[in-house]
């Protein structure tokens, strides 16, 4: 196997109260479009670009998150990478935009269970009450010394992505946390 995310999740992190799983290979593209072109871009591309920073749009396996005023990240199954790349490349001919393949930049963890909130809050200073951080919200933020992307896919389920080299730090943190939840 050529593909290797270089990280193992210890068994201690696969429990009912807290389950942390490595997400499989994904396609990821960082896309920038000028604000004035977004409407036309959406129409031409069919991509469901959300309007507000922090919002996401999920269509089947595809998740589009808006992280900055003109910045979206499209993530999808690994097998759709070529298709999305082609589509973006075609769009680049029509729009003033930027699209960059960042498929291998990140590692994604699925954090779920009753203690999922706490597993995020041991390092992340955001208020995770459903009022402040509703299901479907995504943002870049910080987990102690690691910059992360945080996406809430359910009341007790988060997807956390970080750059590849920060992944062991995240796993070590959760392993330390697991001592306290036994």
């Amino acid at each position: 196997m050529l593909f290797d995310q270089g990280i193992d999740i210890p068994e201690a992190l696969s429990g009912d109260a807290l389950n942390i799983a490595l997400e499989p290979e994904k396609a990821r593209f960082n896309v920038r479009v000028k604000s004035k072109d977004v409407a036309a871009f959406k129409k031409a591309s069919g991509f469901k670009f959300p309007v507000k920073i922090g919002a996401t749009a999920k269509t089947g396996t595809q998740l589009i998150s808006k992280f900055g005023p003109d910045e979206w990240v499209i993530s999808d199954d690994a097998k759709s990478r070529e298709k999305i790349a082609k589509k973006l490349s075609k769009l680049a001919g029509q729009f003033v935009m930027s699209a960059t393949d960042i498929s291998h930049r990140n590692i994604a963890f699925n954090v779920s269970g009753r203690l999922a909130n706490e597993a995020v809050n041991i390092g992340c200073p955001l208020d995770l009450s459903l009022k402040s951080f509703p299901v479907g919200k995504a943002t870049r933020t910080i987990f102690e010394n690691a910059p992360i992307q945080l996406y809430r896919s359910g009341e007790d389920t988060f997807q956390i992505e970080c750059w590849r080299s920060f992944a062991p730090y995240m796993v070590d943190f959760w392993t330390a946390f697991s001592r306290d939840i036994a």
């Binding site: 960059t100 291998h104 750059w163 080299s165």
Partner: peptide
């Protein structure tokens, strides 16, 4: 300027 930056340090 119409230009954007994306960190790809860890992509490669």
């Amino acid at each position: 300027l119409d230009v954007w930056l994306t960190s790809t340090t860890e992509q490669w």
